[in-house]
Computed example of a mutant assay.
Amino acid sequence: MSKPFGPACFALSNTGDSSFAGMAKEPLASAISSNPNLTSMRTAISEAQMTDRLNTARDVTLFVPVNDAFEKIPADQLGQIFADRDRLVPIVSYHVAEGRHSPSSLSDAVLPTLQGDKLTVKRSGDTYMVNGAKVLCGNIQTANATVYFIDTVLVPQ
């Protein structure tokens, strides 16, 4: 499976910066910033002051929560997290796994993250789960990363 896959891939634009081709030309943080379904993660990356780090990272995989995933968190709690860089940086960096991972390398995988903890990926048929979060669209390439959209914000222990 070398192309993007998943039930939500149809929602990506076919043209422009937020298309698969557009994202492939940009480094990670810049590539996701053009997608209207990822504005909450874009804000989290910005507030964590990790834009440059993600744009210059070499060969990483981002499991990016879509906006709906952030909406599962009560607004007051989410506001507190976004306002506290010491809490936000570990959460953002927990979504970034070392190395580029294709779908074939994600069957029953344990991946080290930039945060220092590990993510567990399980596959059942065409469904991939990352620590219980469902992959909605995956194997999206950027200039320096592979991206998987997920339905839940992951929080390190």
Rank of each mutant, 00 (worst) to 15 (best):
K122G: 15
E26D: 08
D126N: 14
I140C: 11
V92H: 02
K25M: 11
L111F: 00
G138I: 02
S13V: 00
L106I: 03
S18M: 03
M23L: 14
V89A: 05
G99C: 10
I45P: 02
P7N: 12
L78D: 11
P36Q: 07
S105K: 12
Y94G: 04
S30R: 14
G116P: 14
D76K: 03
R42N: 15
M50L: 15
N131G: 04
D126L: 14
K25I: 14
S40K: 10
A11I: 07
D108H: 13
N67D: 10
P90S: 07
A143K: 13
G125V: 01
T113E: 03
K122P: 14
T146M: 08
S30N: 15
T120D: 09
A29V: 04
T127K: 14
V64P: 15
S30P: 07
L62K: 05
I140P: 12
M1K: 07
R42P: 11
I91L: 13
G22T: 08
L54D: 06
Q49L: 01
P156Y: 07
E47V: 01
I150L: 06
L54Y: 06
N37H: 15
V153Q: 10
D126S: 14
D59G: 03
T146N: 08
P103V: 03
F63L: 11
P4Q: 00
Q49V: 00
E47G: 04
D68T: 09
L88H: 05
L28D: 07
C137F: 13
S102Y: 07
G125R: 03
L88D: 07
L54C: 10
A143I: 08
K118G: 03
S40D: 10
D59N: 09
A109R: 09
V155Q: 11
D151F: 13
S102A: 12
A133W: 11
T113D: 03
I45G: 01
S102W: 08
M50I: 02
D117M: 06
N131V: 04
C9M: 05
H95K: 07
M129A: 12
